[in-house]
Design a binder for these strands. Structure first.
Length: 488
RNA sequence: GUCGGGGUAGUACAGCGGUAGUACGCCGCCCUCAUGAGGCGGAGGUCGCGAGUUCAAAUCUCGUCCCCGACACCA
């Protein structure tokens, strides 16, 4: 049986999930559901990244110890994913015991390969805040958080020989078109690799909240190394059954800002440890909100659970996928969301189901007739797009089909027909709706289910997405979506 | 600064050598099976600017202006 392993990044638990976290996770969910629909064995991993100085700091600001603090924030993620209908198979936390043990084992493996060496880490340090400040954040020699002067200090640290893998990685990029999608983002990585590649410090002495470095217990493993290893620790590397079955990952879904970690640092560590590379790293763009970047200072984070409760989960899922092609940036606004709900979900999909079922109710005879709408749908194309992670294009293809069936219904004017002629139009329309319900399942699972209930058909996999004789027991129900009238 | 992407209708985008397109919005007409849903028609663009190549340029070349992204924190 074919397998499919998809991951989201593990989210850093300093705050509740926002619309960007939801977006990444929804893409992963769609892919997971799509591959299940094809009858494959799927492993969908998500989770939380819980170590590091920023978590430690956030915890102390909240007056809690770090473990208490992260336990609290993790619940927000789990509840959000439940509310958004996310079908993950495993939720990993970097504070889980098995993860900690495997990270230490993984680091030892890199040490045994000879790719870890001891040196000095030098950086800007804010003494009162007890944290290192990245060069790019230092403002006029001052700490961006407290405004006090930072100083250059040195401490012992261990480094990973990233530079050693530069050429190997360049070869991977040039030989494998699918290693990083989209191409434009792959090019950015290649151009960075062609520049200076420094070895990476992978431990810190000054940080306490994290996994201890197995070679020297006075050091703590840098949070990124700890986090990246989740993709194999979740599977029980190196001997676990899941690891043997599901690794290498088919796709790591990431935001564009963490692509370097996933397409360069992570692969380098895997090569060093003798582990095969993930097949694809899919980098997506960012959401702005009402044209502005989401930020703490603007306080404009959009809570996906609130939006889902206000409109509907599937309205949100539909909007996020349809509004912005994977890899590009896009803007979130409630007015754009409402416009898609009214203009597409209500007027195209909801309307189609509604008008077809009304005529079916009125017609008493049996439904049958030759199929004539099958040319309107190219399932191969939808399938190819999803296999190539073009979720926006695939959804658009399904939508073209929905529009074409509305047009078919309109042109045939079945409300003026009777007997065989009417029966045929109804059979075509019902079969189209049944196939639409199958193809929409990955994108809008609860809407898909509602359509199936009203058509009186059961759960169906992709192999049932073929036109034929409609066999459901139709039972008209509530409208799929409600028109939003309020001006926003 | 270095590297990369882009500037096309009010807005969002497609087209990438052969009479300027799609969606939303706007205007007009028509229909009624359907959630004040639907259909048809229309207005609206010197395709950033200048030059060149060509029978022919949004499309290729050069120049120029402007926007955006990556450059080791962020979905």
């Amino acid at each position: 049986m074919e397998k499919f392993y998809v991951t989201t990044p593990i989210y850093y638990v300093t705050m509740k999930p926002h619309i960007g976290h939801a977006y990444t996770t929804i893409i992963a969910d769609i892919l997971a559901r799509w591959h299940r629909l094809k009858g494959e064995e799927v492993f969908f991993l998500t989770g939380t990244d819980e170590h590091g100085s920023k978590v430690q700091k956030a915890a102390s600001e909240a007056g809690k110890n770090p473990q208490e603090f992260v336990d609290g924030v993790v619940e927000f993620y789990k509840q959000a994913w439940k509310a958004l209908n996310i079908s993950y198979d495993k939720f990993i936390r970097t504070t889980d015991d098995y993860h900690i043990a495997i990270v230490r084992k993984f680091i030892k493996k890199l040490w045994d390969t000879g790719d870890i060496f001891k040196s000095k880490y030098e950086g800007w340090y804010c003494l009162p805040d007890e944290t290192f400040i990245p060069e790019s954040e230092v403002q006029d020699g001052k700490c961006p958080y407290c405004g006090r002067a930072v100083q250059k200090i040195q401490e012992d640290a261990y480094f990973f020989s990233l530079s050693k893998y530069k050429d190997t990685l360049l070869r991977v990029f040039s030989e494998d078109e699918r290693f990083v999608i989209p191409k434009s983002k792959a090019n950015e990585m290649v151009s960075r690799l062609n520049g200076e590649v420094k070895d990476l410090d992978i431990t810190r002495q000054s940080i306490d909240w994290g996994i201890k470095f197995p070679i020297d217990e006075t050091q703590t493993i840098y949070v990124w190394v700890d986090a990246l290893a989740n993709y194999i620790s979740a599977l029980g590397w190196p001997d676990g059954e899941d690891f043997k079955k599901f690794w290498p990952a088919d796709v790591h879904i990431v935001g564009k800002e963490i692509l370097w970690f996933h397409s360069v640092i992570w692969p380098a560590m895997l090569i060093s440890a003798g582990v095969p590379l993930p097949k694809t790293i899919l980098a997506h763009g960012w959401w702005t909100v009402d044209g502005q970047k989401m930020s703490k200072s603007l306080g404009n984070f959009v809570d996906p659970v609130e939006i889902a409760n206000k409109y509907s989960v599937d309205s949100l899922r539909y909007f996020l996928i349809k509004e912005m092609p994977v890899g590009e940036d896009g803007d979130f606004s409630e007015s754009a969301l409402v416009s898609r709900i009214n203009g597409e979900l209500v007027a195209d999909l909801g309307n189609l189901l509604s008008r077809v079922l009304t005529l079916v109710d009125r017609y008493k005879g049996s439904i049958s007739g030759e199929i004539e709408v099958d040319k309107e749908l190219d399932i191969e194309k939808v399938s190819d797009m999803l296999d190539n992670y073009n979720v926006t294009g695939a959804l658009e293809e399904v939508w073209k089909f929905i529009r074409s069936i509305n047009k078919y219904f309109n042109d045939k004017e079945p409300w003026k027909l009777e007997g065989q002629e009417l029966s045929k139009v109804l059979n075509n329309s019902l079969e189209a709706l049944r196939i639409i319900s199958i193809l929409l399942e990955p994108f809008m699972p609860s809407t898909s289910l509602k359509i199936k209930e009203q058509l009186g058909v059961g759960e169906e996999k992709l192999d049932k997405a073929k036109f034929g004789q409609f066999r459901g027991k139709v039972k008209r129900g509530e409208n799929l979506f409600t028109k939003v009238n309020a001006k926003v």
